[in-house]
Computed example of a mutant assay.
Amino acid sequence: MWESYPIGTRPSGWIELTENGWGAIASWFAGPENVMREPMGKRTDLVRVTCEKPEGTSTSWTETITEAEIEEIEDDIDGYLADSGLPSRPHGYRWFLRLPSGIKDESDFWSRLNEAAFKMPHTNWDPKREASNLGESITGLFSQMP
């Protein structure tokens, strides 16, 4: 089903989904009518690296993210999706979401998902149950669209 997500340029007003399992789950349950992907292109993000020394001091610096680190992020997302019972998504894309009506901004969207997550029992964490709960929240937000 990931193949049905349109490829293009981020539309105005759409938010970029986070590069983690929740961002992937949000894109899956929002569906291709509310999500699009854009080829990633060359990444120049800076990441902070910290080296801890045995004597308890540390040194930090920034460097450009590597292709191996990007692939590791994508693999972690795929692992989270697999644990949730969902298929791996294509690598090499940025993912964008059209906000549901009634959601004022990106912060409001993620707050709603956090609320749904906090309602779940926190014993014996079950990624399939978490994905299902988040999915219900996401589809509920989009079902209110005109």
Rank of each mutant, 00 (worst) to 15 (best):
M1L: 09
M1D: 06
E3R: 07
Y5L: 04
P6V: 04
P11K: 01
P11T: 00
S12A: 07
G13D: 01
I15V: 09
E16K: 08
T18F: 07
T18K: 15
E19D: 10
E19Q: 08
E19S: 08
N20T: 06
G21F: 03
G21M: 04
W22H: 08
G23L: 09
A24H: 01
I25C: 10
S27R: 09
F29Q: 04
A30N: 01
G31R: 03
G31M: 05
G31V: 05
P32A: 15
V35A: 04
V35C: 11
M36S: 07
R37L: 06
R37C: 06
P39L: 15
P39M: 13
G41L: 07
G41E: 08
G41R: 10
K42G: 13
K42C: 12
R43Y: 15
R43Q: 15
T44H: 14
T44Q: 13
V47N: 14
R48P: 15
R48Y: 11
T50C: 08
T50I: 15
T50D: 12
E52R: 12
P54N: 11
P54Q: 11
P54D: 09
E55S: 11
E55M: 10
E55T: 03
E55V: 04
S58Y: 14
S58Q: 11
S58K: 09
S58E: 13
S58T: 09
S58W: 13
T59M: 11
T59N: 13
S60M: 02
W61V: 12
W61H: 10
T62D: 09
T62L: 09
E63W: 05
T64N: 13
I65E: 10
T66S: 13
A68F: 07
E69W: 10
E69Y: 13
E69K: 14
E71M: 09
D75A: 07
D76T: 09
D76Y: 06
I77F: 05
Y80I: 15
L81H: 06
D83K: 12
D83S: 15
D83M: 12
L86F: 03
P87G: 00
P87D: 01
S88C: 10
R89H: 13
P90S: 06
G92T: 10
G92W: 12
Y93E: 13
R94W: 09
R94M: 14
R94I: 12
R94P: 05
W95Q: 05
W95V: 03
W95E: 07
R98N: 11
P100E: 12
S101N: 11
K104T: 12
D105N: 14
D105T: 13
D108H: 15
D108A: 15
D108S: 13
F109V: 07
W110M: 05
R112N: 08
A117S: 10
M120N: 05
H122S: 07
H122I: 08
H122F: 15
T123Y: 13
T123C: 08
N124L: 03
D126R: 00
D126L: 02
P127A: 01
R129V: 07
R129C: 01
R129Q: 06
A131G: 00
S132Y: 06
S132C: 04
N133I: 09
L134S: 04
L134M: 05
E136R: 11
S137F: 07
I138G: 00
I138L: 02
T139Q: 06
L141F: 02
S143G: 00
Q144D: 03
